[in-house]
Amino acid sequence: MTTSIAPRRAAAHSAARRGTLVGWLFAAPALIAYCAFVIYPLLTGLQYSFYRWNGVGPSEWVGINNYVRVFTDPDLLGSIRNAFVLIAFFTIVPVAAGLVLATLIRSMRPGFFSSASQTILFLPQIIPLAAAGIGWSWMYAQTGAVNQLLSAVGLGSLARPWLGDFQTALPAVGLIGSWVLTGLCTVLFLTGIGKIDPSLYEAVRLDGANWAREFVTVTIPGLRQEIAVLVTITIIAALSSFDIIYTTTLGGPGRATLVPGISIYRIGFTQSEVGLASAFGIVLMILVLACVLPIQRLARVSDR
Rank of each mutant, 00 (worst) to 15 (best):
S137A: 13
C185R: 02
I176S: 01
A228G: 14
F89P: 02
E202D: 12
L99R: 02
N54F: 15
A27M: 15
Q142N: 10
A159S: 15
I87A: 03
L230Y: 04
H13I: 11
S79G: 08
Y265C: 05
Y34S: 14
A152L: 15
G111R: 09
I235A: 09
L258N: 05
S151M: 14
A83F: 07
I92Y: 01
I126S: 03
Q142W: 06
V274S: 04
L121Y: 02
R224I: 06
M1F: 14
L123A: 13
L276K: 07
T232D: 06
Y265D: 08
S157N: 12
Q225E: 11
E214Q: 13
S49D: 10
Q118W: 03
I196A: 07
H13E: 05
S114G: 10
A16P: 02
G281D: 04
I32H: 04
S49P: 12
A33D: 03
L99W: 03
L104A: 14
L223A: 06
L86W: 01
I127A: 04
P260W: 05
M139W: 01
C185I: 03
T103W: 09
T232A: 08
L77G: 06
L150S: 10
F112R: 15
T20Q: 12
L163P: 00
M285H: 05
I264V: 14
L223R: 03
G63M: 11
S272V: 10
P171A: 11
Y67L: 13
R17L: 15
L163M: 07
V56L: 15
L155S: 09
S178G: 07
L184T: 08
V173L: 14
G133W: 00
R8H: 05
F269W: 15
S278E: 09
